[in-house]
Design a protein around this nucleic acid. Structure first.
Lengths: 83, 83
DNA sequence: AGTCTATGAATGAAAG
DNA sequence: CTTTCATTCATAGACT
Protein backbone atom coordinates (compact mmCIF):
# COMPACT_ATOMS: atom_id res chain seq x y z
CA UNK A 1 0.00 0.00 0.00
CA UNK A 2 1.45 3.26 -1.09
CA UNK A 3 -0.63 6.13 0.26
CA UNK A 4 1.30 8.97 -1.22
CA UNK A 5 4.23 9.12 -3.52
CA UNK A 6 6.75 11.31 -1.84
CA UNK A 7 9.63 10.80 -4.15
CA UNK A 8 7.94 11.18 -7.45
CA UNK A 9 9.15 7.87 -8.76
CA UNK A 10 12.88 7.40 -9.11
CA UNK A 11 15.40 9.37 -7.20
CA UNK A 12 17.48 11.74 -9.18
CA UNK A 13 18.53 14.64 -7.05
CA UNK A 14 20.84 14.23 -4.09
CA UNK A 15 18.39 16.05 -1.88
CA UNK A 16 20.00 17.23 1.34
CA UNK A 17 17.15 15.84 3.36
CA UNK A 18 17.23 17.98 6.43
CA UNK A 19 15.54 16.24 9.24
CA UNK A 20 12.27 17.73 10.36
CA UNK A 21 12.38 18.84 13.93
CA UNK A 22 8.87 19.02 15.27
CA UNK A 23 8.37 21.62 17.94
CA UNK A 24 6.49 20.91 21.13
CA UNK A 25 3.49 22.83 19.81
CA UNK A 26 3.39 20.67 16.73
CA UNK A 27 3.78 17.51 18.71
CA UNK A 28 0.97 18.59 20.94
CA UNK A 29 -1.32 19.04 17.97
CA UNK A 30 -0.27 15.77 16.39
CA UNK A 31 -0.74 13.91 19.63
CA UNK A 32 -4.16 15.46 20.01
CA UNK A 33 -5.14 14.31 16.55
CA UNK A 34 -3.71 10.89 17.18
CA UNK A 35 -5.45 10.52 20.52
CA UNK A 36 -8.68 11.68 18.98
CA UNK A 37 -8.75 8.44 17.10
CA UNK A 38 -7.35 9.61 13.80
CA UNK A 39 -4.35 7.34 13.73
CA UNK A 40 -4.34 7.19 9.96
CA UNK A 41 -5.30 10.58 8.62
CA UNK A 42 -7.02 10.16 5.28
CA UNK A 43 -5.57 11.80 2.25
CA UNK A 44 -8.11 14.54 2.30
CA UNK A 45 -7.22 15.52 5.81
CA UNK A 46 -3.55 15.92 5.10
CA UNK A 47 -3.64 19.43 3.64
CA UNK A 48 -5.82 20.53 6.50
CA UNK A 49 -3.48 19.17 9.12
CA UNK A 50 -0.49 20.54 7.32
CA UNK A 51 -1.95 24.02 7.19
CA UNK A 52 -2.60 23.81 10.87
CA UNK A 53 0.96 22.83 11.62
CA UNK A 54 2.45 25.34 9.27
CA UNK A 55 1.59 28.08 11.65
CA UNK A 56 4.72 27.08 13.47
CA UNK A 57 6.96 25.80 10.73
CA UNK A 58 7.10 24.54 7.21
CA UNK A 59 6.06 20.94 7.11
CA UNK A 60 5.70 18.65 4.16
CA UNK A 61 3.16 15.96 3.56
CA UNK A 62 5.68 13.24 4.16
CA UNK A 63 6.65 14.62 7.51
CA UNK A 64 3.50 13.95 9.35
CA UNK A 65 2.77 10.90 7.32
CA UNK A 66 5.94 9.41 8.76
CA UNK A 67 5.05 10.79 12.12
CA UNK A 68 1.77 8.95 12.22
CA UNK A 69 3.39 5.81 10.91
CA UNK A 70 6.01 5.83 13.61
CA UNK A 71 3.65 6.96 16.30
CA UNK A 72 1.27 4.12 15.70
CA UNK A 73 3.91 1.49 15.17
CA UNK A 74 5.96 2.38 18.20
CA UNK A 75 3.02 2.82 20.52
CA UNK A 76 1.79 -0.61 19.58
CA UNK A 77 5.05 -2.38 19.99
CA UNK A 78 5.58 -0.76 23.36
CA UNK A 79 9.28 -0.97 22.87
CA UNK A 80 10.11 1.71 25.34
CA UNK A 81 10.83 0.62 28.87
CA UNK A 82 9.17 3.59 30.41
CA UNK A 83 7.41 6.56 28.89
CA UNK B 1 15.68 20.72 40.55
CA UNK B 2 15.72 19.55 37.02
CA UNK B 3 18.86 20.33 35.08
CA UNK B 4 17.21 19.90 31.73
CA UNK B 5 19.68 21.30 29.33
CA UNK B 6 18.45 23.45 26.54
CA UNK B 7 19.19 22.81 22.93
CA UNK B 8 20.10 26.06 21.33
CA UNK B 9 17.13 27.74 22.87
CA UNK B 10 14.61 25.11 21.89
CA UNK B 11 13.36 22.86 24.60
CA UNK B 12 13.30 19.17 24.05
CA UNK B 13 11.32 16.49 25.79
CA UNK B 14 12.13 16.91 29.47
CA UNK B 15 12.47 13.24 30.05
CA UNK B 16 14.64 12.17 32.96
CA UNK B 17 15.35 8.54 32.29
CA UNK B 18 18.24 6.68 33.76
CA UNK B 19 20.36 5.02 31.25
CA UNK B 20 21.12 1.37 31.21
CA UNK B 21 24.64 0.46 32.13
CA UNK B 22 25.54 -2.87 30.61
CA UNK B 23 28.00 -4.87 32.63
CA UNK B 24 31.00 -6.63 31.12
CA UNK B 25 29.28 -9.99 31.40
CA UNK B 26 26.30 -8.66 29.54
CA UNK B 27 28.40 -7.06 26.87
CA UNK B 28 30.27 -10.30 26.42
CA UNK B 29 27.04 -12.17 25.83
CA UNK B 30 25.67 -9.51 23.53
CA UNK B 31 28.85 -9.42 21.53
CA UNK B 32 28.77 -13.18 21.26
CA UNK B 33 25.25 -13.06 19.92
CA UNK B 34 26.14 -10.29 17.55
CA UNK B 35 29.21 -12.05 16.26
CA UNK B 36 27.26 -15.24 15.84
CA UNK B 37 25.47 -13.57 12.99
CA UNK B 38 22.40 -12.40 14.79
CA UNK B 39 22.98 -8.73 14.19
CA UNK B 40 19.33 -7.88 14.34
CA UNK B 41 17.49 -10.29 16.58
CA UNK B 42 13.81 -10.61 15.78
CA UNK B 43 11.30 -9.33 18.24
CA UNK B 44 10.58 -12.83 19.41
CA UNK B 45 14.15 -13.45 20.39
CA UNK B 46 14.52 -10.37 22.48
CA UNK B 47 12.65 -11.60 25.56
CA UNK B 48 14.73 -14.75 25.40
CA UNK B 49 17.94 -12.80 25.30
CA UNK B 50 16.71 -10.58 28.06
CA UNK B 51 16.01 -13.49 30.35
CA UNK B 52 19.50 -14.69 29.73
CA UNK B 53 21.00 -11.37 30.68
CA UNK B 54 18.76 -10.72 33.60
CA UNK B 55 20.91 -13.01 35.63
CA UNK B 56 23.16 -10.02 35.99
CA UNK B 57 20.80 -7.10 36.02
CA UNK B 58 17.36 -5.88 35.15
CA UNK B 59 17.15 -5.00 31.52
CA UNK B 60 14.25 -4.02 29.34
CA UNK B 61 13.48 -5.04 25.82
CA UNK B 62 14.23 -1.62 24.48
CA UNK B 63 17.73 -1.80 25.85
CA UNK B 64 18.60 -4.69 23.60
CA UNK B 65 16.85 -3.19 20.69
CA UNK B 66 18.89 -0.04 21.02
CA UNK B 67 22.05 -1.95 21.70
CA UNK B 68 21.81 -3.97 18.54
CA UNK B 69 20.76 -0.99 16.53
CA UNK B 70 23.72 1.02 17.67
CA UNK B 71 26.10 -1.89 17.51
CA UNK B 72 25.24 -2.60 13.90
CA UNK B 73 25.11 0.99 12.82
CA UNK B 74 28.37 1.93 14.44
CA UNK B 75 30.25 -1.14 13.39
CA UNK B 76 30.11 0.20 9.86
CA UNK B 77 31.20 3.75 10.48
CA UNK B 78 34.06 3.91 12.84
CA UNK B 79 32.19 6.71 14.52
CA UNK B 80 32.02 10.16 13.10
CA UNK B 81 33.02 13.34 14.79
CA UNK B 82 31.69 12.37 18.14
CA UNK B 83 28.94 14.57 19.22
C1' DA C 1 38.32 20.28 37.50
C1' DG C 2 37.35 20.40 32.57
C1' DT C 3 37.37 17.97 28.03
C1' DC C 4 36.72 14.19 25.02
C1' DT C 5 34.94 9.89 23.73
C1' DA C 6 31.91 5.99 23.66
C1' DT C 7 27.46 4.80 23.75
C1' DG C 8 22.45 4.57 25.44
C1' DA C 9 18.34 6.59 23.83
C1' DA C 10 15.29 8.74 20.65
C1' DT C 11 13.08 9.48 16.45
C1' DG C 12 12.65 11.08 11.52
C1' DA C 13 13.07 8.86 7.16
C1' DA C 14 12.92 5.20 4.34
C1' DA C 15 12.95 0.44 2.82
C1' DG C 16 10.68 -3.97 2.50
C1' DC D 1 2.09 -2.39 8.23
C1' DT D 2 6.85 -4.04 9.81
C1' DT D 3 11.57 -3.51 9.90
C1' DT D 4 15.75 -1.19 9.09
C1' DC D 5 18.80 2.82 8.39
C1' DA D 6 20.52 7.41 9.59
C1' DT D 7 21.03 11.25 12.42
C1' DT D 8 20.73 13.42 16.58
C1' DC D 9 20.81 14.33 21.69
C1' DA D 10 22.44 13.32 26.32
C1' DT D 11 25.50 11.54 29.41
C1' DA D 12 28.51 8.12 31.88
C1' DG D 13 33.22 7.12 32.05
C1' DA D 14 38.02 7.74 30.62
C1' DC D 15 41.53 10.78 30.13
C1' DT D 16 44.27 14.81 31.08
Amino acid sequence: MQPISFRGGEERTPDPKPRWNPRPEQIRILEAIFNSGMVNPPREEIPRIRMRLQEYDQVGDANFFYWFQNRKSRSKNKLRTGH
